[in-house]
Amino acid sequence: MMTSLPAIVQGTRVRVPAVLLLALAFACSAGAARAEDAGSSAGANSPVEEFSQQLEAFQKSVPDLNKTIQDSAGTIDSATDVEKARAEINRLRETVSALLGAVSDNGPVSQLGAKALDHIRNKLKALAQDNRFKPEERQFLIDQWRKLETQTEGATKELDDARAQFAGLLHTLQDNEDFIGELLEIRQAEKALEVIRQLTHDIRDASAQLNKLIGGIKPPGA
């Protein structure tokens, strides 16, 4: 059958948009399928990655927790050690003793003060008999030395006070040794309590992490 040229052209005009539409529909469906594939693969990876991250975090935290438990046990052991309290009193007594040693009557600081005062008093005696100066010059020098004498006596008095305080402290430490020992033990027990509280907190954290990890495990079809 012979077809006229205009009819062919008209037929082609009709077919071209149809082919284009078909190709577009195919392309769209292929794109959608790819997107669906990609989407489904992303959905499958996400819980695995999440689980993996949680597992990793938990595994990392376990050695830390073990170390914390060991450290805490050590701290509690030392906190309940009575000898440690005694040693602490001895250290305190040693510190006070060193201070008292410096300011004791036969200690170096007291002797320095006594020497300084002796020197000033000898100088005042010597000046009273010294004829090298005019009366007003001598009076000026005597006034200066007297001022120094007053200030040095003041400093020596402060030293006396410090000596009395350190001696009092040492008396208190030795007179109330048992009571102070008990106070130190109470302080240590408070430290132990603090350690136990911290440990409980850490274990609770680890437990929460573990629960999260277990909750994240969803078998297919569950």
Partner: peptide, 8 residues
């Protein structure tokens, strides 16, 4: 006082 403690 500190120096005296150290020296003495």
């Amino acid at each position: 006082v500190g120096a005296a403690i150290l020296v003495w």
